[in-house]
Computed example of a mutant assay.
Amino acid sequence: MDSTPSTSTISKSVVLALRVLTFVFLLIALILIAINKGTEDTTNGPLEAKFNDFHAYRYMLSTIVIGFAYNILQMALSIFIVVSGKRVISGDGGYFFDFFGDKIISYLLISGSAAGYGVSDDLHSFFKAQELPFNSFFAKANASATLLLFAFLFTAIASVFTSLALPKKT
């Protein structure tokens, strides 16, 4: 009797591992962007910048929160599938939910990451020209955007596995 797990069991475990990695990266990105603020001394007193002062950072935070909520749902479903061997949503609907959900969320995550990188680069150049570098502020925002990019990559890889699980129609 062969005791090696089937490829189906391996792919379910891989998807669960990808979801856990996505969860970790989204959680750290959320913490970094939510607590991010910077202060620079000027002749008129200290100037403070917070993430919610900029629309692109608020968008990035929104994409993190939406991705986080979706990922928690998918982690719970993946754990149930790995443990019980059964799907919560029976029929083709569950497979399509996984596939399209992963696609939509991955696109949302990459757009949030791109928005964060774009505004950081533009604002850092602008503030540097004004001799207000805010280096720590932009470093934390870029770190959050980088973690969001990694979360996108893991979600995109998970979408490849969920596409392989789609029912084959003749």
Results as ranks from 00 to 15, higher is better:
Asp2Gln: 12
Ser3Asp: 13
Ser3Thr: 15
Ser6Ile: 09
Ser8Tyr: 12
Ile10Arg: 06
Ser11Gly: 00
Ser13Phe: 07
Val15Met: 09
Leu16Gln: 08
Leu16Asn: 07
Leu16Phe: 10
Ala17Pro: 05
Ala17Val: 09
Ala17Leu: 15
Arg19Asn: 10
Arg19Pro: 01
Val20Tyr: 04
Leu21Ser: 10
Val24Ser: 07
Phe25Tyr: 09
Leu27Ala: 12
Leu30Trp: 03
Leu32Val: 08
Leu32His: 00
Ala34His: 06
Ala34Val: 00
Thr42Ala: 00
Thr43His: 03
Asn44Lys: 13
Glu48Cys: 06
Lys50Asp: 07
His55Lys: 15
His55Asp: 14
His55Ile: 06
Ala56Asp: 15
Ala56Lys: 09
Tyr57Thr: 02
Arg58Pro: 00
Ile64Arg: 03
Gly67Glu: 03
Phe68Ile: 00
Tyr70Phe: 15
Tyr70Ala: 14
Asn71Cys: 10
Leu73Gly: 09
Gln74Val: 05
Gln74Arg: 13
Met75Phe: 11
Ala76Gln: 07
Leu77Arg: 15
Ile79Cys: 13
Val83Ile: 11
Val83Trp: 12
Val83Asp: 14
Arg87Val: 01
Val88Phe: 15
Val88Leu: 15
Ile89Asp: 04
Ile89Gln: 07
Ser90Gln: 15
Ser90Cys: 05
Gly93Lys: 12
Tyr95Asn: 14
Phe96Leu: 14
Phe96Arg: 15
Phe96Met: 12
Phe96Asn: 09
Phe97Ser: 11
Asp102Phe: 03
Lys103Gln: 14
Ile105Leu: 09
Leu108Phe: 04
Ile110Pro: 05
Ser111Ile: 01
Gly112Gln: 10
Val119Arg: 06
Ser120Gln: 04
Ser120Val: 09
Leu123Glu: 10
His124Val: 09
Ser125Met: 10
Ser125Glu: 13
Gln130Leu: 14
Glu131Leu: 10
Glu131Gln: 12
Leu132Asn: 06
Phe134Cys: 08
Ser136Gln: 08
Ala139Val: 11
Leu147His: 02
Leu147Ala: 01
Leu147Gln: 06
Phe150Gly: 02
Val160Ser: 07
Leu166Met: 11
Leu166Glu: 02
Pro167Thr: 07
Lys168Thr: 05
Lys169His: 13
